[in-house]
Amino acid sequence: MSPIDRIQGYADELTAIRRDLHAHPELGFEEVRTSGIVAEQLEAFGVAVHRGIGKTGVVGVLEGRPGKRRIGLRADMDALPITEETNLPYRSTNSGKMHACGHDGHTTMLLGAARYLAETRDFDGTAVFVFQPAEEGLGGARAMIADGLFEKFPVDEIFAIHNQPNGPHGRLMVRPGPAMAAADFFDIRITGRGAHAAQPHESVDPIVVATAIAQAMQSIVSRNADPLKSAVVSITQIHAGAAYNVIPQGAHIAGTARTFDPALRQLVGQRIREIAEGIAAAHGARVEVEIRDVFTVLDNSPEQAAAAAEIAAEILGADNVDSDCTPRMGSEDFADMLRIVPGAYAWLGATPGPGLHNAGFDFDDSLLPLGAAFLARVVQRRSTV
């Protein structure tokens, strides 16, 4: 029996797990309940479980037939600080927290693959299941790596999958080489001089400074970046003030910059600093700029990317595979694992609906057996290379 047929037989159980995780989302490094469920499920399958890797991470190890190859599969577990705006019966019960990126589905797909492999033992060598915390910009992959992930649980290669809510449904997309952008997070803290709103001449208005900086930063991509190289600069937060009649003392701007090219990444950071410092000085304000390297470029190994496409064609059909998809400006900290171990990261198209990081998003449960079967077949095929 093929993986997809067998896993379809317990698809309803996978859906129940996924919806339970959706109803109880936990932010990065807080995935205590989630990791507990993962560990309990793995133990019930007969998988050796190791907890507390990278704080709340879980690693499962399963032995198949005698063999030297060790294949890693990874899923992320954390939710986002978003208030859910759906009327689903299993909507979030944790205020201000939501699985708006589908990590509940990724975790469940990997559990489905682990169950199949544990029940059949139809593979050579060792399967290593990595359930990672804190993917959403908090450094969960780096935490697991620093905690000795690949020293304690060495693998020859590693694979991961992410849902793609704009479809096409059931289509797997992968590409060799750079596939997702590097990301920096920035914080710009402006200190001016507060005053009564009726006496603005006595102030150094940090809101005026913040808006001038925000406007000027839009010129970085249009006027500083090579138009043939991709870059995104997005301001996602502006905080200032708490009253109608008070010019505040300070303001805070935050956001992200995305690039593929190292030189362009450096240029974007330099221009953020120059613009913020120059405009602040022109207004008589002070400014502090912090730029943090959060994600590196996700670089798929050519051999593993080709293997992922070939395996997907077997599971999903050749017409449902795009083996050279367009690179994405989104970022993913699986990139840090791929810097140490060769592997590949792919996307699986869902029934089109609200996008990732949207308050109306919900994971497409019909992907659970498809993704689980793909991951299980990766272990079967790559363990005999």
Results as ranks from 00 to 15, higher is better:
100 A>I: 03
281 A>P: 10
273 R>V: 15
268 V>D: 12
28 G>V: 07
211 T>H: 06
56 T>Y: 11
68 K>P: 11
19 R>K: 06
31 E>K: 03
125 G>V: 10
91 R>K: 15
73 L>H: 13
253 I>S: 08
183 A>I: 06
315 I>V: 15
148 G>V: 06
15 T>M: 13
66 P>D: 06
70 R>Y: 04
226 D>K: 14
352 P>M: 09
252 H>D: 00
65 R>D: 11
194 G>D: 02
63 E>M: 05
277 E>Q: 13
292 R>M: 07
249 Q>D: 12
313 A>E: 11
173 M>F: 12
349 G>C: 08
124 D>H: 13
356 L>M: 11
123 F>E: 05
318 A>N: 03
318 A>I: 09
268 V>P: 03
248 P>C: 06
291 I>Q: 14
212 A>L: 09
327 P>C: 11
108 T>P: 07
102 G>V: 02
331 S>Q: 08
28 G>A: 06
88 L>G: 02
164 Q>H: 13
15 T>G: 13
6 R>E: 15
318 A>M: 02
72 G>R: 00
76 D>T: 08
174 V>A: 07
174 V>F: 04
66 P>T: 05
316 L>R: 03
77 M>L: 14
162 H>K: 03
359 A>T: 07
381 R>L: 00
61 V>W: 04
151 E>L: 02
334 F>L: 12
295 F>S: 02
282 A>P: 04
274 E>I: 13
157 E>P: 00
155 V>C: 01
39 A>F: 12
55 K>N: 14
18 R>Y: 09
363 F>G: 04
193 R>G: 11
186 F>A: 02
204 V>C: 01
35 S>G: 14
234 S>Y: 01
21 L>G: 04
358 N>M: 12
191 T>M: 13
67 G>Q: 07
17 I>A: 03
166 N>G: 02
255 G>V: 04
294 V>P: 09
223 R>T: 05
86 T>P: 12
39 A>V: 09
91 R>T: 11
154 P>M: 01
292 R>H: 07
348 L>M: 01
131 F>E: 10
41 Q>C: 09
221 V>G: 00
191 T>F: 00
184 D>P: 01
302 P>V: 09
236 T>Y: 02
207 I>H: 03
102 G>E: 09
210 A>Q: 06
8 Q>I: 08
243 A>R: 15
72 G>M: 04
348 L>V: 06
163 N>M: 10
374 F>N: 11
21 L>T: 08
199 Q>R: 15
374 F>R: 03
130 V>H: 08
190 I>A: 07
49 V>T: 07
339 R>M: 12
54 G>N: 12
197 A>Y: 13
149 L>P: 04
241 G>I: 08
380 Q>E: 14
255 G>M: 06
334 F>N: 05
352 P>W: 01
142 R>Y: 07
127 A>E: 01
56 T>W: 10
39 A>H: 10
340 I>T: 08
54 G>K: 09
165 P>K: 03
166 N>I: 10
377 R>G: 05
340 I>C: 05
23 A>R: 01
47 V>K: 01
234 S>D: 00
279 I>G: 05
332 E>A: 09
201 H>L: 12
342 P>F: 07
135 E>S: 11
118 A>F: 06
56 T>H: 13
196 H>L: 10
233 V>R: 03
269 G>T: 10
289 V>K: 14
216 A>P: 01
257 A>H: 05
78 D>T: 11
272 I>P: 05
251 A>E: 00
332 E>R: 05
237 Q>R: 12
214 A>W: 06
